[in-house]
Nucleic acid binder design. Structure first.
Length: 882
RNA sequence: GGGAGCAUAGCUCAGUUGGUUCAGAGCGUCUGCCUUACAAGCAGAGGGUCGGGGGUUCGACUCCCUCUGCUCCCACCA
């Protein structure tokens, strides 16, 4: 069969993925083997694949495939997240485009649209993952809103409610006026934002609601909220304002009378020292209001517009109102001045809307006890964070945790299982039937129609924190007394989790909490935190910038193996990834290199009678040792989650050691046959290399592994055992390295002297060069004869070079440019002499000889001896030239 | 404002408890090659006083202090 000179990924990838699926190679069932488990960080159900997913899932796949080849029962559970706020806003937008407002339809109608949307777009991302080669157990695919997983969420709510951890209350929450829901503290992103600092004059009241001539000045960034002011506050120690004690002031424009109060919260040297207190729209003001028993006047509605309580500018958006009120204040003579000002402003992570601190009734989960245990899990090392710099961040968060606001004013998600009686009391229960029973205990005559379920749904993370448990046994969450089913007891705890540090708290920490609570064990042992994928200029990839390539386009262009490699080449844990398409090109080139190496080997004709050439004998022996060394290095890197290092080691092993040195050494002359021993050894090496590459590049390795030898119908490289490192002779590898150095030096001489590679050279060796590897030098440097020099002095008509401490030369009458050679040799001599001087200075330093470990001193003595011998050789060469 | 981290070749990064000729890799660059596996390739070469300064040590890319620059996390000075 004639093989093309280029590897064609498109042809092979779909073929093998279909074959893997057909044979259910990714499917796992509990058995006697050691399990290796990963649960996917579930992507948004309606999401599409982006480069972050490529990174994450490639890493996951490498780990899973490696474990599979280590003989473990590997199980990678895929699935999707319902992503309540993100999905709901997409559906709202889609309906709006059709002329339907969410407000105008019922909850049931909306959910029907949402499910329709989910059926249509859900799972697209999972099919895209297949293109990437992800070896997920698709039979286990889960969705966080599957009925049984939803039930787990509800049960968890009931469990924590009964435990006294969940409470309902009016609190200051972060209100998202675009998403129309409260969000948790973690979903608020603070960004420095330029705004204005308004200095406003409030006149003192005469006691009857009329202004006097006296006034005070406050500074605020939010003049549109003055109508909600409940007081003006100064620091009790601020003597400038003692005269204000007991006075009342008038809110500009609406002339409402409010008291002046004192509270040490106010900083005297910030702003004017007078703070307007607006309990409804600022967290701190709310706290002050509580201390001073101030009324809460909420003038902003769900959409961020002023309501009728504002009295003026009713119906205006808060930012529009700010612009307008500035003018009104100016005209009324209350505006003193306006300064530019930069301060942190909270934005909604999902909708990017400016968060409105707002008082509302929400459900909360107490976090102190849960966080304490979760902190211990990491501190004790039961859960390892990689890289471990995140431990600090993690600890800080866990020690300063706030109660978790778990209710969301949305429809897409698990509805809160609280049922209200007509009198406002409520019961909490997993099912409506049970709720009715409980309600009857409170109010015997109550009917089902009288019960009203809470309108809110639960935060998405309230379902994803159960993920490592609920994908295996949805009966478990909320029921720690339940006996785990077969899957859960086999696969839990999972092994590794690969995710981004941005959801360390949202997700990772909370999974640890849920695991500790329901399983009395952590959900995973290693958390590998990836960086963010950025473009090569370091910018975050985003749709609006248009700097994010479509992974499917990349796969179409370079192949999935190439994309995987390109992604992995620049991936060290915890560091951001600067992604550049040229890396994918490099990945594709590597595919091609592997392909062509195979093409060479597959074309060989074997001669069973032929003896093994000495160069091949050296090569086979050397590569055997080198391979073992490389396997050991690879395992070491895997153990430390240094996957890009593991990959790079294999890359160089294949490209440099195997192709550039080994194959060149064993390659028979054109048209000639290869001996059986070398051929078999080569196939064995190729086989081992393909296995080592397989976790990184699953497709091309499966393809070539099948071409390498006849395979049975269901044989796959996926289940072959990863090569195990045997002993290797490091000294022999070093000897071979000397041969390599000699070859490089000889090639350099050819290039400098313009000698064709086809013209054989003579070689003269001074001193001890390892005899065994000489055939390698002879073959690769095209040496006609090797002569051992009798003395150190050469003839002058030679081109000398040093390989470590061994002097060699090419006798070359007529090619020697004495002047140039001399210059080179003298420069080298000078360097060596200086080096020797440094070493000797060290060795004559008693403190060094006595203080340094023996080993280090011995090394210095060796350096000294080597330098002395090199200097002698150089001097001999120089003398000869002169 | 508090905390953490980073700074090594043109670019992206290794450098594991201070000590092998330790200043490295990949990519890029330069030079020469279409040599019958591969020009998506082969061969060869150049390139950094390890951000600045100080200190500890026989010895510092590595430990300490300081300065500069960048990044991230946390945070209720309106």
């Amino acid at each position: 069969m004639e093989l093309s000179a280029k590897y064609n990924p498109a042809e092979t990838e779909d073929k093998w993925y279909a074959w893997w699926l057909e044979n259910k190679f990714f499917h796992s069932e509990p058995d006697g083997r050691e399990p290796y488990t990963i649960v996917i960080p579930p992507p948004n159900v309606t999401g599409i694949l982006h480069m972050g997913h490529v990174l994450n899932n490639t890493l996951n796949d490498v780990l899973v495939r490696k474990a599979r080849m280590d003989g473990k029962n590997a199980c990678w559970v895929p699935g999707t997240d319902h992503a309540s706020i993100a999905t709901e806003s997409k559906v709202v937008a889609k309906l709006k485009a059709q002329g339907i407002n969410k407000e105008d339809i019922t909850r049931e109608e909306f959910l029907r649209h949402a499910w329709e949307w989910k059926e249509k777009h859900g799972g697209i991302i999972l099919s895209q993952l297949r293109k990437l080669g992800a070896s997920c157990d698709w039979d286990r695919t889960k969705f966080t809103m599957d009925p049984d997983l939803s039930r787990a969420v509800t049960d968890t709510f009931v469990y924590f409610y009964n435990k006294g951890y969940i409470y309902r209350g009016v609190r200051m929450v972060n209100w998202d006026p675009v998403g129309l829901t409260a969000v948790s503290d973690e979903e608020v992103i603070h960004r420095d934002t330029t705004s204005k600092f308004y200095h406003l004059r409030y006149f003192i009241s005469d006691g009857h609601g009329n202004p006097t001539q006296e006034f005070l000045t406050i500074a605020t960034t939010r003049p549109e909220t003055i109508m909600a002011d409940a007081a003006i506050c100064v620091n009790p120690a601020d003597e400038r304002y003692h005269w204000l004690r007991g006075k009342k002031v008038l809110i500009p424009l609406i002339n409402k009378e409010i008291p002046v109060i004192e509270d040490s919260y106010v900083e005297m040297d910030f702003g004017t020292g007078c703070l307007k207190v607006t309990p409804a729209h600022d967290v701190n003001d709310y706290e002050i209001g509580l201390r001073h028993n101030l009324p809460v006047i909420d003038i902003i509605d769900d959409h961020g517009r002023l309501n009728e309580k504002a009295r003026i500018l009713v119906g205006e958006d808060r930012f529009e109102a700010r612009r307008k009120i500035e003018k009104m204040l100016e005209e009324a003579g209350n505006l003193v001045k306006v300064e530019d000002y930069t301060s942190p402003v909270g934005y909604s992570e999902r909708t990017n809307a400016v968060i409105e601190p707002r008082l509302s009734m929400q459900w909360f989960l107490r976090m102190d006890a849960l966080a304490g245990d979760a902190l211990e899990s990491v501190e004790s090392g039961k859960v390892k964070l990689i890289p471990d710099k995140y431990r600090n961040t993690y600890r800080h968060w866990m020690e300063n945790v706030h109660d978790w606001c778990i209710s969301r004013q949305l429809w897409w998600g698990q509805r809160i299982p609280a049922w209200y009686l007509p009198d406002g009391r409520y019961v909490v229960s997993s099912t409506a039937e049970e709720a009715l029973e409980m309600a009857k205990a409170l109010m015997p005559e109550i009917a089902f129609e009288d019960l009203r379920q809470d309108e809110d749904v639960l935060d998405t993370w309230f379902s994803s924190w159960l993920w490592p448990i609920s994908v295996f046994d949805p009966e478990m969450p909320g029921h720690p007394e339940h006996t785990p089913n077969r899957d859960l007891s086999y696969y839990y705890p999972t092994n590794d989790l690969v995710t981004g540090p941005d959801i360390l708290f949202f997700w990772v920490a909370r999974m640890i909490m849920a695991g500790n609570e329901f399983m009395k064990d952590v959900p995973f042992h290693n958390v590998y935190l990836t960086g963010i994928v950025r473009d090569k200029l370091g910018r975050k990839m985003s749709k609006t910038l248009g700097n994010s390539p479509d992974p499917l386009d990349l796969i179409a262009k370079y192949g999935a193996d190439g994309v995987r490699l390109g992604m992995l080449l620049c991936t060290s844990a915890g560091n951001d990834i600067l992604f550049d398409e040229s890396q994918v090109e490099q990945g594709r080139n590597f595919c091609n290199k592997i392909w062509n190496a195979f093409r060479l080997v597959s074309g060989w004709k074997v001669d069973g009678q032929a003896g093994q050439p000495s160069a091949a004998t050296v090569a086979v022996k050397w590569f055997g040792h080198r391979l073992n060394e490389a396997i050991a290095e690879m395992e070491d890197h895997y153990g430390k989650f240094r996957l890009s290092d593991a990959l790079m080691g294999i890359y160089r092993l294949f490209w440099d050691d195997f192709c550039a040195w080994y194959l060149e050494l064993v390659k028979p002359a054109y048209g000639a046959c290869i001996d059986k021993a070398t051929y078999d050894a080569t196939l064995g090496f190729f086989d081992a290399l393909l296995k080592m590459i397989h976790p990184f590049m699953p497709f091309i390795t499966e393809e070539l592994w099948h071409d390498l030898a006849p395979r049975g119908g269901k044989e796959t490289i996926m289940f072959q055992r990863m090569p195990v490192a045997g002993n290797y002779d490091a000294a022999f590898i070093e000897d071979f390295a000397m041969a390599e150095e000699a070859v490089v030096a000889l090639r350099a001489i050819r290039q400098q002297k313009n000698i064709s590679p086809k013209e054989p050279l003579k070689l003269r060796v001074y001193g001890d060069f390892p005899e065994e590897v000489m055939p390698a030098v002879i073959k690769l440097a095209n040496i006609a004869s090797v002569e051992t020099a009798k003395s150190d002095a050469d003839s002058g008509a030679e081109l000398p070079f040093m390989v470590r401490t061994v002097k060699m030369s090419v006798p070359a009458e007529g090619l020697v440019d004495a002047g140039k050679e001399l210059e080179k040799l003298e420069a080298d001599l000078k360097y060596q002499e200086e080096f020797l001087a440094i070493v000797r200075r060290k060795l004559s330093n008693e403190k060094f000889v006595n203080g340094a470990p023996e080993k280090v001193v011995a090394v210095e003595r060796k350096k000294e001896a080597d330098a002395v011998s090199k200097i002698e050789s150089l001097k001999a060469s120089i003398a000869a030239l002169k």
